[in-house]
Amino acid sequence: MGSAPSPLPSAHGTPTETVSAQVGSAVRPPLPVKMVVAGGFGVGKTTAVAAVSEIEPLTTEASITEVAAGIDDVSLTPNKTTTTVAMDFGCLTLDPTLKLYLFGTPGQDRFGFMWDDVTEGALGALVVVDSRRLDDCFPAVDYFERKGMPFAVAVNTFDGDLTHPLDAVREALDVAEEVPVLCFDARDSGSVRDSLVIVLEHALARAVAAA
């Protein structure tokens, strides 16, 4: 049974495509949606996921596609290969029919940042930044820009210290004007929740503009 399910444009309100034929009377699962929490090593990704997840963040292994170059033009990088990495995730049941998964993807990777396996179909991404080590997030920012995925840059304030003003961070990252740059506290569930909402509002604005 190798053929891919054909995701027909189904009627609104259908939570998921049931790929298997009518088998038994399986429980109707919620619509799963996902967001990505990305950034360099030790910037607070796992902390942020833990702050809002209803389960202890779990770690699993996933395959990622690596590109053996960090240069802008992905078409010039034929050296794609697949490797296995650990990623954390958490989840939030928003209502019985809707479940949000958060995937924390490690960004410290000398081969760049091609997390297609995880990011495909994500609603958006939060790129977590430690403003003292700003370049750690460059691969993630580059990746989401190339992918055209809505994202926001969230400077983790750690102990309430914002070492660099947001304007300076925005300037250094050189992100598009519409990309939100904000500060948050990765330990605070409300702060993380609000940051995710900012990503989604950005995604919504883009979706509305494109509709």
């Binding site: 444009p9 949606v33 179909g121 609603l123």
Partner: peptide
């Protein structure tokens, strides 16, 4: 096992967002 593959296009679905 029933496998429910998410619809493609969900990520830019205004209602879902």
């Amino acid at each position: 096992l029933a496998v429910h593959v998410p619809r493609s296009g969900t990520s830019s679905d205004i209602d879902v967002l």
